[in-house]
Design a protein around this nucleic acid. Structure first.
Length: 586
DNA sequence: GCCGTTTTCGGCCCGACTGTTTTCAGTCG
């Protein structure tokens, strides 16, 4: 009897097989095929179970008879023969070795075979006693590097939040922009793509070759640097005190656009771009876009004219694809028509929605937060303190709500009299209770201009229960928007597992928005749901969830997430004028 | 293992850097 499958589960399974194959020394192209199939499943529109029931998996690009058959068997029996066979050859302990920088599948399997070890602790011992250094193809230096990497790995997290990465990146960019001969500097990689967490920080510099030595020197001499991992004339890597790796690449100014595209990635995006170039008998690399010579190699003497990333896309019959969308996640379909996707920008924001004050757990008064907003050029601010159930955060009792409204009225009156074009909306971040009800009776709720509903407890409840809870809240006539829908804290806590692919259409149907919480610890709604959101025209708002003045500036991270999710300004509530917004809120 | 209006076989993205190498494999992005 077949059981119901999840896309993520199947994708993870295929990826695992790919990894096992590499560790087992299998042909890499075979492994790549499983990786590609994993990505196809991951990005699949619709229900994978439909494809399995109808036996139509082979209609998908990257899935042929063999993998399709594997998955039909998996749906039927819960196991795949090829995986079972591989697991016999490759001990599961070796998986964690892949995280050791400098160690790849080949060396891992070689060491494992030669020394008969499977655990990282054993690997450490064998590095120390010289056994690793004595293996062919490895040496003293290799053993030392492995030990060093393991120590870093144990001490520091693999990834960091985007706000943490930004601070480090700014330091390097600052130092490099001042260096002699530097014509352009840009952050590339996942930071430029506005990913929610960052592994390595990539920086690209355009400069004439004569200056590169000096620029490299400045780079590795930055006070943030605690270790130089590699140093060449065009490429160097360092590690900072926070344990982050920073890579610098220096290119000739004429290669800058292609290099910027290359180092921005994502890997998946790059691969797709190069394949696209090849189908047009062109060759794309980090130096440019070239015609091919007789043996299908890039003919560096015959470049296509490229002055910007836009030119590269245009030569490949695509509209400009903003960095945030370059995830191999449907962006090519969007740009195929030649019209660049219209994405919300920071300057589109006209007001702030979702901020806390000293009335609950914020650090600043209403007046101070309002002033901070006017200083930043915003036209309105929706104050949304916590509701009464959030006692730990100073949630407002009904009486306090009424008092706060009075204060807001007083301040708004002052603005009106002074002719200040600014308005404070009476809002609330109401807890969504276990049964999906909101935290005040309807007669209180209807007095707010804006009601956000958020889950703050019971995140670990079963997915179906959580979905039901969120749906009940979304259907509430007085609720305008769901706050941080999964409740995740990046790199700290998983969010609830409610199926957002079901919640999003339901919310859209009930004219309820779902927030993009811009706090860099959250960035929730996850951008990966952007496609579903677009399908059903879901409304959102980019909300700082600010507890302080500086917290307001977190909206820039939320804009990154909104762009990544493909939101145009028209589907972001706080890009509206006050009048439009009030009309929408009814 | 997948894929094909130039191919049903022979390709599969591509270059920099490191370490262990006397010419290159492995890793990384």
């Amino acid at each position: 009897m077949s059981h119901s499958l999840q896309k993520d589960e199947v994708a993870a399974l295929l990826e695992e097989i790919a990894t096992l194959m590499r560790l087992a020394g299998e042909n890499d192209f075979r492994a790549m095929a499983f990786d590609r199939a994993a990505r196809t499943i991951e990005n699949l529109d619709g229900d994978i179970n439909q494809y399995i029931e109808k036996q139509t998996l082979t209609t998908l690009k990257g899935i042929g008879n063999s993998i399709a058959e594997d998955l039909y068997i998996y749906a039927e029996t819960g196991s795949i023969p090829v995986r079972e066979k591989l697991l016999e050859q490759v001990p599961s302990g070796l998986f964690s070795w892949l995280k050791i920088s400098g160690l790849g599948p080949k060396k891992i399997f070689k060491i494992h075979k030669a020394l008969n070890i499977t655990e990282i602790t054993e690997l450490k011992d064998r590095c120390k006693d010289g056994s690793v250094a004595s293996l062919p193809g490895l040496g003293q230096k290799s053993a030392e590097n492995i030990l060093k990497s393991i120590r870093w790995m144990e001490q520091f997290a693999e990834r960091c939040r985007v706000d943490e990465a930004e601070i480090i990146a700014d330091s390097f960019v600052g130092i490099l922009s001042d260096a002699e001969g530097v014509e352009q500097v840009s952050v590339a990689g996942s930071l430029r793509r506005a990913s929610e967490t960052i592994g390595d920080i990539d920086i690209l510099v355009a400069a004439q070759e004569v200056h590169s030595e000096n620029i490299m020197e400045r780079f590795v001499r930055n006070s943030e640097v605690v270790e130089v991992l590699g140093r060449g004339t065009t490429k160097s890597s360092v590690r900072t005190g926070e344990g982050r790796q920073v890579d610098l690449r220096i290119v000739d100014p004429e290669h800058y656009p292609a290099a910027l595209m290359y180092f921005t990635g994502s890997k998946e995006h790059n691969v797709a771009m190069r394949q696209r170039a090849r189908t047009r008998n062109l060759q794309l690399n980090e130096y440019g876009l070239f015609h091919q010579n007789a043996d299908n190699q890039a003919d560096f003497n015959r470049p296509l004219p490229v002055d910007s990333e836009t030119d590269i896309y245009r030569h490949l019959n695509l509209a400009y694809i903003p960095p945030e969308l370059r995830e191999g996640h449907g962006e090519f379909e969007l740009a195929e028509g030649g019209i660049s996707p219209d994405l919300v920008e920071l300057r589109d924001l006209q007001g702030i929605i979702h901020a806390h004050t000293t009335w609950s757990d914020g650090k600043r008064s209403i007046r101070e937060m309002a002033k901070a907003c006017t200083r930043r050029g915003y036209r309105y601010l929706a104050i949304t303190d916590h509701s009464r159930t959030a006692a730990y955060a100073g949630g407002l009792t009904v009486d306090r709500v009424y008092e706060q409204w009075k204060e807001i009225d007083v301040i708004n009156n002052e603005y009106a009299q002074r002719g200040t074009d600014f308005y404070i909306l009476k809002g609330i971040e109401s807890d969504i209770l276990s049964d999906g009800k909101l935290d005040y009776p309807d007669e209180v709720l209807k007095g707010f201009d804006l009601v956000i509903g958020s889950v703050h407890f019971g995140l670990e409840n079963p997915p179906d229960k959580m979905l039901d809870r969120l749906m009940r809240a979304a259907a509430h006539p007085h609720l305008h928007m769901l706050g941080h829908p999964t409740g995740r804290l990046l790199l700290q806590r998983e969010g609830s597992k409610a199926d957002l692919n079901r919640l999003i259409p339901f919310a859209a149907e009930h004219n309820t928005a779902i927030e993009i919480n811009a706090n860099p610890r959250r960035l929730d709604l996850d951008w990966r749901y952007g496609r579903k959101a677009r399908e059903v025209n879901l409304m959102s708002a980019v909300c700082p969830d600010a507890h302080s003045e500086e917290g307001l500036d977190d909206v820039r991270y939320g804009i990154g997430t909104a762009r990544k999710a493909g939101f145009p300004a028209q589907r972001i509530l706080n890009t509206f004028s006050l009048e439009e917004l009030m009309k929408r809120l009814g």
